[in-house]
Write a protein that binds this DNA or RNA. Structure first.
Ligand code: FES
Ligand code: FES
Lengths: 144, 144
DNA sequence: ATATTACCGGACATTAGTGTCTTTTATTTA
DNA sequence: TAAATAAAAGACACTAATGTCCGGTAATAT
C-alpha cells in the first residue's frame, strides 16, 4: 500500500510516541528495535525532521524525539505530508482521471475503497494509537 | 493500485472483449487506441497468451483475440492469474504478517478495505463489463 | 518459392525506489 | 582545547519495474 519510506516513517513515529519520556532515541536503537536497515532509516528520519514531524539533537546523548503536535496527527495526515493524498483520487484501473462522467468498469465499487482507506487512516490520532498500545489493547510487538 | 503490466492487461482484455467480432487485433492498433507504449504492450500480450487468457495468430492478418472462457472471468480472476492475490492479505502498515493476534494500529479498519477491494474486483465478469459498455451504461472512452 | 506481415524471444536501456558508505557539522564531555 | 558522539549531507550501489530494440519464427499472399 505504501512506499517503504512512508511505511518506515509511520512506524518510526509510533515508536517515538511510545518512547517520548524525556530521553532521546538514536538511529541505531530504532533500527534494531524495528528491524529496519539502519542507514536507510537514518535518511527517513532526516526527512521527518525536515517535515517537522520529528525533532533531532546532534552530539553525544543526542537523537530523535517526537514533536508534540505530531501526537495530534492521524496516519492520514502523515501520509499527506510525505507523499500527498492524490493516490486516494486515482482511478483503480489507472485512467488519467477518475470522475463520474467517464467511469471505468469498477468506478462505482471502487469509490467505497477510497472512502474506506481514508477512514482507516484517519480513525485515530498517533496519541490515541499510543494509548491503545500502552493500555494493552494492542500488542507492543506490532512493529515486527 | 496495480502494476502497469496488470493495468495494461486488464484494459487490453476489455478492449479485446469489445472487438471480438471475428477479426483479429494487432499490437499497433491496440497500442494507439489505448495509448499504451507499443513495444511494452507487445510484451504484456505475450504474457497474456502464455497465461491462456488471450490467443494469437502470426503472419499477415494475424493478431490477438480473446479466449472465450476469459469472458467469464472477473477482474479479480485476472489479477490472480497475473500477480496473485497475496496483496489482499498484506498488512496495511507493512508488518510481516497481518493477523488478529498481532494487529497493527489500523488492522480493524483495514480489513474493510481488503473486503471492498475484493468486492470491487469481482462484482462483474468481463462479459458483463462488455455488455455495460455496449449498452451505453458506461462510456466506450473509458480506456483513456 | 519468395517476400511480406506480425507475433515471439532475448537482450538491452531507463527509471525510481531502496539501501549503503563516507565526509561534514554540531554538540557534549574530558 | 581536544576527543568522542551522533545527526546531516552527499555520493554511490543495487534492484525491480518499465520500456525499447532487434533478430527469429510462423503464416499469408503473390
Ligand atoms: S474511473 Fe476508474 S475508479 Fe473512477
Ligand atoms: S496487522 Fe496491519 S492490517 Fe492487519
Amino acid at each position: 500500500m505504501f512506499s517503504k519510506t512512508t511505511e518506515y516513517s509511520i512506524r518510526a513515529i509510533i515508536y517515538l510516541a511510545l518512547n517520548n519520556n524525556s530521553k532521546l532515541i538514536g538511529v541505531s536503537e530504532m533500527a534494531s528495535e524495528l528491524r529496519f536497515p539502519e542507514a536507510f532509516l537514518g535518511k527517513v528520519l532526516q526527512l521527518l525532521v525536515k517535515k517537522q514531524l520529528v525533532g533531532s539533537i546532534k552530539g553525544p546523548g543526542g537523537g530523535f524525539y517526537l514533536i508534540d503536535s505530531t501526537l495530534n496527527l492521524t496516519i492520514l495526515n502523515i501520509v499527506d505530508s510525505l507523499e500527498g493524498l492524490e493516490f486516494l483520487d486515482k482511478c483503480g484501473l489507472g485512467l488519467h482521471s477518475c470522475n463520474k462522467n467517464n467511469p471505468c468498469p469498477i468506478h462505482d465499487e471502487y469509490k467505497n475503497v477510497s472512502i474506506n482507506v481514508k477512514k482507516a487512516l484517519s480513525a485515530k490520532s498517533i496519541n490515541e494509537i499510543k494509548n491503545e498500545i500502552e493500555n494493552g489493547k494492542r500488542p507492543q510487538s506490532f512493529h515486527f
